[in-house]
Design a protein around this nucleic acid. Structure first.
Length: 192
DNA sequence: CAGTGGATGCTCT
DNA sequence: GAGCATCCACTGT
């Protein structure tokens, strides 16, 4: 039932967050036609002390406790927005943070929103991704299988690498960051 | 390049 | 009142 011009089915997200996260590497994400290829993500499981859902449901993380295949958007450090894809069965409260994208569509729009030209700096970081694509807290809870989101499966199997997550203090040693090997668009290189 | 510190606002204790 | 799932500017090699 999977064809290359068809959006990712909701069943794709109804699996372990640790299966979904590496499978998102190479998929194409656009928001109102602006986006590109996902090259870096991080998995956050509800049993993980670093996850927003670890201490239970609150107003902020409510979407994480809802059905899979929806966007959880939160404000980071008072300034930035970050977007996650909710995974696993409803109530599981696990999600994948989108950390970096290789810009492919709407690059001029991204440059304008980001206020800089260097294509390598447009979407190489979770806050940068949301600024470049125009994702804000207004979009918290939107489903991923309809506009403004569009999420297409990857055409070929990429070389996926894993390593520790970035910018967290709790459970910082868990290797739940996934990336496209050798990509120039990562927020940080993966250690060998 | 690596390291440091400020901006900034919301959530949860 | 503390602590952020970050980014940028600035410093010093």
């Amino acid at each position: 039932m999977i064809s290359s011009d068809r959006a990712l089915h909701r069943d794709f997200f109804d699996r372990s967050v640790h299966a979904v996260a590496p499978d998102l590497i190479g998929a194409t994400l656009t928001f109102n036609g602006v986006g590109g290829r996902i090259v870096e993500v991080e998995a956050y499981h509800h049993t993980d002390p670093a996850a927003h859902s670890y201490r239970g449901r609150t107003a902020r993380n409510a979407v994480m406790f809802g059905p899979p295949g929806h966007a959880y958007v939160y404000r980071s450090y008072g300034i930035h927005w970050c977007v996650n894809f909710v995974c696993e069965a409803e109530g599981s409260a696990s999600a994948v943070l989108i950390r970096a994208i290789e810009p492919l569509e709407g690059i001029d729009t991204m440059r304008s929103r980001r206020g800089l030209d260097d294509i390598r700096l447009l979407c190489s970081g979770p806050g940068r991704v949301c600024q470049a694509l125009g994702i804000t807290g207004h979009h918290d809870g939107l489903t991923l299988d309809r506009p403004p989101f569009r999420l297409m499966p990857r055409a070929e199997m990429p070389d996926v690498v894993a390593g520790p997550r970035i910018g967290i203090t709790k459970a910082a040693d868990l290797p739940w960051r996934y990336g496209l090997a050798g990509s120039r668009f990562l927020s940080k290189p993966f250690r060998k």
